[in-house]
Every structure is written in C-alpha cells, then in structure tokens.
Amino acid sequence: MSRITIDDVTKRFGDTTAVDGVSLDIDDGEILGVVGPSGCGKTTTLRTLAGFETPTSGRVLFDGDDVTHRPPETRNVGLVFQSYALFENMTVRQNVEFGPKMQGVSGDERRERATDLLSMLGIPELADRDPATLSGGQRQRVGLARALAIEPHILLLDEPMTGLDAKLKTRLREEVGDLLSELDVTALYVTHDQVEAMEMCDSIAVMNDGQVEQVGTPREVYESPASSFVSEFVSLDVPDFAFVDGAP
C-alpha cells in the first residue's frame, strides 16, 4: 500500500470542468471517502487516479512517484465498481486470479491468493461458480477479492454499495469496513451516501462543482462543516450512526 497524492488536478471535457484544482492526500492505510452530489467530480477524480483520465493539469503521485501519464495497467490499482464488472466468461476463482495472472504471478501463488481472499470474504464455496449465478452481495465480494488479489497500491471503490438492498448494505458496510481496516488497505471510497462514508472512512472529502469543499475526519466534517454546502449535505437525513472511531 502507498501514500497517494492528488496535486492540484484539473480535468476539463471541452468547455466543462469536471474537476477543478483538486488536491488530496491519502496516507498509507487510510480510507478516504469522497462524497458529493451527482456530477460533483468524484468519479472523475477516481478515474484520474486509476489512469482512465489524464488530468488537464496537475499531478498524481503514488509514494512520491509521478504516475500522471502512466497507463492504467501499470499503476497497480484495484477497482471495485457499482456494477460489479465481473468477467462473465470466467469462474469466480478465475476472476480473482486474473490480475495476478496478468502480473505474471505463478499458478500456485495465484491459487493460494484466490483461496485466501475468497475465504477472507466468506465465499470460499463460490470459487467454481459462474458469476452470473451469484447474488448482488456475493458479486460485490468477488469484485473486492479480485481487486485485492493484485495487492494494489490503492483500492478504488466506486459506489460499491449502490443498488444493494438496505439490509445487505448495512451488513456489507460493516464487513468491508472491517476487512479494509484489517488489511490496512489504502482506499478511496466514492459514494453519494454520506452515512456510508461516515461509517466506513477514516476521513472524508466533500466535493461540490468539481472542487473539494472540506477534508476532515467524519466527526470534523459533521460537527464543524466548513461551508453551508457541507453543512447542508452532511446533515441531510443522517440517522444515528457510529463514526469510524467508534465514539458515539
């Protein structure tokens, strides 16, 4: 895992500025939640980190190494999508082994990694299943195992809980949060659900209109919002929740 720096990144698509001078630091092992309304630039920020968008200006650094112009396949970034994006022509195990295979990891080690990850995520019995036969929660676990199998510098999660039912979401939120903490994974967690971010992330960046409005711990953002937008955004329908530090 690495320390990730987004340094004054701007991304324009024609006349539209999707990301406007965003700077963020993610410490080694930290989970940073990026929240904001639709179209605020959070997914573009994630895609810029993954290498699918090259910033119009600014830099992306992994452990001080400038990766701004490197293609996605050389960045060693794990991606988890809302839509799962599993390889439907492969079994669950083949999905998990795909990344290590592309990296030239030996067959034995690939199998071992896949077995360990599937066990860790509580789905070892699904190894030989076709992804199409799995439930949403199971598919998301496979997506997570696949992303973790490459031992990424950073794990990028793009609205991974959206679309799941409320009960499953709550359970998965706890499980994934515990797992990421246990593995000490550096992660960027993009979501429009502020409760989800507050429960799962060490710190939160609130974005609006392509810019970062505030970065801080969930408690800081909730208790001392830096702007009226942040105040309005985080105070919307927030029920009782536990901050990631466990304090009430």
Binding site: G51, P72, R75, L79
Partner: peptide, 17 residues
Amino acid sequence: NERAEEAARSLGASPAR
C-alpha cells in the same frame, strides 16, 4: 461491458490482452 474492460486494465492487462 466497458467497466469489465476497465477492470481488466486496472488489473494489469494491456489493451491487447
């Protein structure tokens, strides 16, 4: 599924692979 293609790229597969 373009997301699956992006997932493959992020996992280390070149465009050809």
